[in-house]
Design a protein around this nucleic acid. Structure first.
Lengths: 190, 190, 190, 190
DNA sequence: GATGAATGAGCTTTCATTCAT
DNA sequence: CATGAATGAAAGCTCATTCAT
């Protein structure tokens, strides 16, 4: 939770937006610099290279997601409520931050991703794993590999958000509940 | 189902492999040429530009997937069997052709994807839609938007294949059935 | 006055047109081939190289000009009439064959031109020189270097045709006479 | 009359020289860079593209010509003197700067030229037009279209300079006067 | 003679990165 | 810390030319 220098943040945010607009390859450092309102050279004070910038941007977005998801949680919910809240709140975060969604999608299916430390990797779905642990202890979840279940859940969230953003299907509150219910039915013991 | 010139095919296949290894950006035309055993200029007899090559490669892989999935289908299966077969057979295709999976993932989350004709886009999940239609008619599927359901199913398949390929979780026949069952439970009326 | 193979002529004519439209550099051999309705390789049966093609095209256009100019000449004209006829008839040829004009202009101010044999070079203004000789013998022309005068006359013709083609100034019969008169006054003893 | 960055000027001058030696097409950017003593990429800080470079080079040479011609003018000359001075001074500028002459010739008969703004185009013969205006007012010039006359005069200058440079005819002071006299007789009322 | 697929050298241009100021 | 002009390796692409058919 380090405090990020103002310019560093501007660079990260610009990169995020530009990658959504133009993709990795369509986003040269000079463009990032211009959008962030700094000189090209300045970027290299904060990041060793473009690769580093992108790797750090991933960590940065992961942080944002975790923060957003955590602040919605309350005590004393039953497990199903708990799941619904997490699923919907994460989905809505992506919808409200399409640039983050877009970036993560690109990042995850790029040669950058495998370079992430396993550690970094784990953390990104902390909240989902937290929940699975809970469900396991209560014996209401299917007996499926831990990691696999986490990834499947996360994938369903991203996919739903993506569909909504692309406007292929309009999702209202009812639809989000329907979807959460579907996924819930897929992980709980029937 | 046109017959593809031998060199054209070699170029497509080389591109597929190289993109898996190095990503879009890390795959220069010169490298494609070398791997395909042709001169750089030759690529431009078959494809107008790198963009065109990649767009056509998408169509090419879609064709392969459809073909592979279709040949597994038999008559006289009940709906659940039908679904399991399709889910597992597509998942296994991706596992046996990780380069296709990798390419599609990258393609779909890149600025290329939106440039696909809607038509092209639709066709890519034809088989899944075919199945949903069937299920609908029998009234056993949930009342969720058609396209949304198709995409969610497809996403689950890709995610599962990906997890397996990455070796994060070892999936055997049992696990595939478990997964298909999960997705089945998420789309059918309970 | 050799007889030119049909395809060879088609190639020359296509090149002429394409160079007018796109310039030397904008006219690849493949384009010439397509326009001429022959295969790319065929061009190399008739011309050793692109350079050769262009050099021969120059000779070809020179021939056309000479032919056109000659056929307008009649016997028994006085010198002034003679001059006017030659000036106007050449000017009108260029106007009716703007591609020839355009090509010669480009050719003459390109690195190709100096490679012309001096012989070839001389011939291109044969008719003008013929006239100057005549005028000299009658002692009515200024005492200016032979070649210089020929080139100045030719240059005035091309310039006038060019202005007309570009539509910068509309030239009618009256104007052509005016122009011929101007040049006539510049070369004759006053 | 902006001050041109040193490197920008070096690039313009190198291009000018190289085009004289090798023509447009024979002058790759890498060669320009080497001759100018800069990196290839540097050219693109100052010019958007090769096309832009060439277009700007035309403006640059036009400026040089105008400057050279203007500084020779004095007050209180009669019209004929005035004309002779302008004609000869421009002709001598071209002779002393054959690369400029060569470049303008090539430029004017290339697909670049029509892309010039009409404005840019007009200005290039400002001094000649200035003179024609003067002559008109005194009623000593023939009644020929303004633009046409300007172009014919300019063409005569370039042609003469070209002949001299090519060494086809040696022109001394006497010959220049003769030529100016010829053109003078062609535009004035007799 | 005629074809056109194939070649590969060479072109224009981009862009991550550096470094003198 | 910040700048942005300068770099130059490397990319995408073109096109004159060849040669097996």
């Amino acid at each position: 939770m380090e405090i990020i220098a103002e310019k560093k943040k501007a660079i990260l945010e610009s990169t995020l937006k530009l990658i959504k607009e133009n993709g990795f390859h369509g986003t040269p450092m000079s463009m990032v610099a211009k959008r962030a309102g700094v000189a090209a050279g300045t970027i290299y004070h904060y990041f060793d290279s473009k690769d580093t910038l992108i790797m750090e941007l991933f960590a940065y977005t992961q942080g944002q997601v975790q923060e957003a998801v955590h602040k919605d949680l309350r005590e004393g919910m039953d497990l199903k409520e708990n799941f619904f809240l997490r699923w919907i709140s994460r989905c809505q975060f992506y919808i409200q931050h399409p640039d983050v969604l877009f970036f993560i999608e690109q990042f995850v299916s790029s040669p950058y991703y495998p370079r992430c430390s396993p550690d970094q990797n784990e953390r990104s779905q902390n909240d989902i794993k937290e929940f699975i642990n809970l469900g396991r202890q209560h014996g209401i979840l299917r007996d499926v590999d831990f990691k696999l279940m986490a990834i499947m859940i996360h994938s369903s969230i991203m996919t739903a958000a993506r569909v909504h953003i692309d406007g292929k299907v309009q999702l209202g509150e009812k639809e989000f509940h329907q979807l959460a219910q579907m996924i819930w039915d897929s992980i709980r013991k029937l």
